[in-house]
Simulated scan of single mutants.
Amino acid sequence: MAASNKWLMSSAAYYLDFFTVPLFVVLALCIAPFHLGQALAGLLAWSLVEYLVHRFLFHSLYRREHWTHHLDVLAFIGISSWKTSSAYAGLLVLAWLTGLTSVFIGVIVGYFFYISLHYVMHRPEHWAYRFVSGLATNHDLHHRKGIEKNFGVSSPLWDHVFGTYVRVQALNTVEENT
C-alpha cells in the first residue's frame, strides 16, 4: 500500500494537544463542579471511542493515512491538533450546557493519556518507556504487517471484550506451528 502525506503535519501542530488538553481540563473545572463518577464514565467512554476509531476508521476508511504512521512511527503523522482542539471546544460547550462537564474531563484526560502513551511507546529511549513496556509490546505487535489485532493503545480492555487481543507469545506459538 502506498504511503500518504495527508496526515503529515508540523511539529507545532503535532505537539499542540499536549498544551491545549490540560487547558481544557482547567477551563472545565472552572465552569462547573467536578463529579468523579462522571469523569470515570468519560474515561471509559474515551477508551471505547479510541478502540472503535482505531479499528473501524484508521484500519478501513483512513487506512492509507494510518499505514503511513505504521511505516514511520516517529514522523509527525496524525489528526491535526487544530482539528481536535476545535472539536473539544465544541464538546466542552455541549457538556457544559447538558451538565456533563465532568464526563468531558474524563474523555479528554483519556485522550491526553492516549497521546502521551502513544508518543512514549514509539520511543524506547524515553524515561517513561519502562512503565509502559507491556502496552508497548501489544502496540508493536499491532504494527506488524498483517496483524489486525490490539487496537487499544492506552488499554487492551476493548480488545478483550471484542476478541481482538492477542499476546506476543500466543502469536509466536501460532507462527511456529504453521
Rank of each mutant, 00 (worst) to 15 (best):
67 W>N: 15
67 W>L: 13
67 W>G: 09
67 W>P: 04
70 H>G: 07
72 D>I: 11
73 V>S: 13
74 L>I: 02
75 A>N: 11
75 A>V: 08
75 A>S: 10
76 F>V: 09
77 I>M: 04
79 I>A: 05
79 I>F: 03
79 I>D: 06
80 S>G: 11
81 S>E: 06
82 W>N: 08
82 W>M: 12
82 W>K: 12
83 K>C: 09
84 T>M: 11
84 T>A: 09
85 S>Q: 07
85 S>R: 00
86 S>L: 15
86 S>G: 15
87 A>H: 06
90 G>S: 08
90 G>F: 01
91 L>I: 13
91 L>Y: 00
92 L>A: 07
93 V>T: 14
93 V>H: 08
94 L>K: 09
95 A>V: 07
97 L>F: 06
97 L>E: 11
98 T>F: 00
98 T>D: 06
99 G>N: 05
100 L>D: 09
100 L>F: 00
104 F>A: 02
104 F>D: 06
105 I>Y: 02
105 I>V: 14
106 G>L: 00
106 G>K: 01
107 V>Q: 00
108 I>D: 03
108 I>K: 03
108 I>L: 03
110 G>M: 01
112 F>A: 12
112 F>W: 04
113 F>D: 12
115 I>A: 04
116 S>V: 05
117 L>W: 01
117 L>P: 01
118 H>Q: 13
119 Y>K: 08
119 Y>R: 10
119 Y>E: 13
120 V>G: 02
121 M>N: 12
123 R>M: 10
123 R>C: 09
123 R>P: 08
123 R>A: 11
124 P>E: 15
125 E>M: 13
125 E>P: 00
125 E>W: 14
126 H>V: 02
126 H>M: 10
127 W>A: 14
127 W>M: 12
129 Y>W: 15
129 Y>N: 10
130 R>F: 08
130 R>S: 12
132 V>I: 15
132 V>C: 07
132 V>Y: 09
133 S>A: 15
136 A>T: 13
136 A>F: 00
140 D>E: 15
140 D>G: 12
142 H>P: 02
142 H>A: 08
143 H>E: 12
143 H>N: 09
144 R>K: 12
144 R>Y: 03
146 G>R: 06
146 G>A: 05
146 G>Q: 07
147 I>W: 02
148 E>H: 14
148 E>F: 15
151 F>V: 08
151 F>A: 05
151 F>R: 14
151 F>C: 04
151 F>W: 00
